[in-house]
């Protein structure tokens, strides 16, 4: 028996079959997606509809609420001409006691070629990927505190578009690192793509126990952490994942870690400000910054469609290249 389990998101040619996490992926896996995403924009910067996934059925299975991610996945699927089914399981059969596995098998029997899954439990997408039939693909649209790879990829796309090559850049991720699957995936993406420096900024109570192990520089002082950075990524304060009192108050958090125009002056003059959304105005970010000239927050949303199109196109393309071998 092999000591290490083969990465279930890769096929035997080490190409993406599922996208569950960025952990363990190589730079070429990421750049292939980022490069392809660019080609979906036409000369006017619009996303054209193409017939690439005609006849494929993609099911968006959301056990947790989502607006941006679910909608941009749906638009991406429709731009690729796939048939789209949306399931909000929070209001569906699991309430009647159906297990995750039974839900999956039933949806698979309805002819799904790909599942896009969001779940409050870390590891739910991996669970799905282990259970699906050969030839069915799983995309993780966020599982618990674990990973949100498509978000991190669209963030890398946005950074690359505005700032060029990532290896030259200093990037600060600010706020609730502990509960953030987005931060985890972003840190992985930035290290895979060789960012010059990755900083995380936040209070001790919202840091994982040993953040340095992730290969990042840790700052508890916002002003010091923002000094000279090219990119500032703000995170949402995740009240729904917090148990117990980790913060004195939202006001106090804003005073210490909220991004204001004044604080932003510490960063490079051409620094960009990002946020995965939804934003809490006046909690982690001031409206003047969120709506200001250096904010690329809405551009992130548009880019999310192109990047999600690219993820799906790459995975179906990989499966098409060696269908016989995949069946073994």
């Amino acid at each position: 028996m092999a000591l290490v389990e083969r990465d279930i998101q890769l096929d035997e040619h080490k190409r993406l079959k599922h996208l569950l996490t960025l952990e363990g992926l190589k730079a070429h896996h990421l750049t292939e997606i980022l490069d392809l995403a660019e080609t979906f924009f036409d000369a006017n910067g619009e996303l054209r509809k193409v017939p690439l996934l005609r006849g494929k059925t993609i099911m968006n299975v959301f056990f947790e609420p989502s607006t941006r991610t679910r909608t941009t996945f749906e638009i991406a699927e429709k731009r690729l001409s796939a048939d789209v089914v949306n399931l909000n399981i929070a209001t569906s059969a699991t309430k009647k006691g159906e297990s995750l596995q039974d839900t999956l098998w039933n949806l698979q029997a309805m002819g799904a070629d790909m599942f896009v899954i969001r779940h409050a439990d870390s590891g739910a997408a991996h669970f799905f990927a282990r259970q699906v039939a050969e030839g069915v693909h799983v995309l993780n649209a966020g599982d618990g505190r674990h990973a949100h790879p498509s978000q991190a990829l669209l963030d890398m796309f946005t950074i690359r578009k505005h700032k060029g090559d990532i290896y030259d850049l200093k990037v600060a991720i600010v706020g609730d690192i502990l509960h953030s699957r987005v931060a985890r995936s972003q840190i992985q993406a930035l290290s895979i793509l060789g960012a010059r420096e990755i900083r995380v900024i936040g209070p001790r109570t919202l840091m994982p126990s040993c953040p340095e192990a992730l290969g990042v520089h840790v700052y508890h002082d916002m002003d010091a952490g923002l000094e000279d950075v090219d990119v500032v990524i703000m995170l949402r304060l995740q009240n729904e994942r917090m148990s117990g009192a980790r913060l004195p108050s939202e006001k106090e958090f804003f005073r210490l870690y909220g991004l204001t125009e004044q604080r932003l002056e510490r960063a490079k003059p051409d620094a960009i400000v990002m946020h995965p959304g939804p934003i809490n105005r006046g909690v982690e970010i001031d409206s003047a910054v969120a709506d200001g000239p250096r904010s690329v927050i809405l551009d992130q949303v548009t880019n999310g469609i192109a990047v999600r199109m690219a993820i799906m196109a790459v995975i179906f393309s990989n499966a098409a290249r060696h269908p016989q071998e995949d069946a073994s």
């Binding site: 392809l36 036409d42 193409v50 017939p51 690439l52 393309s317």
Partner: peptide, 24 residues
């Protein structure tokens, strides 16, 4: 660039050198 319109995508996958079309 007709890469996204080929009828053999499900047999051979995507052309890796695909670039956007431009009809001005």
């Amino acid at each position: 660039d007709i890469s996204f319109y080929r009828d053999d995508f499900s047999r051979v996958g995507l052309n890796p050198t695909v670039r956007p079309s431009d009809i001005p």
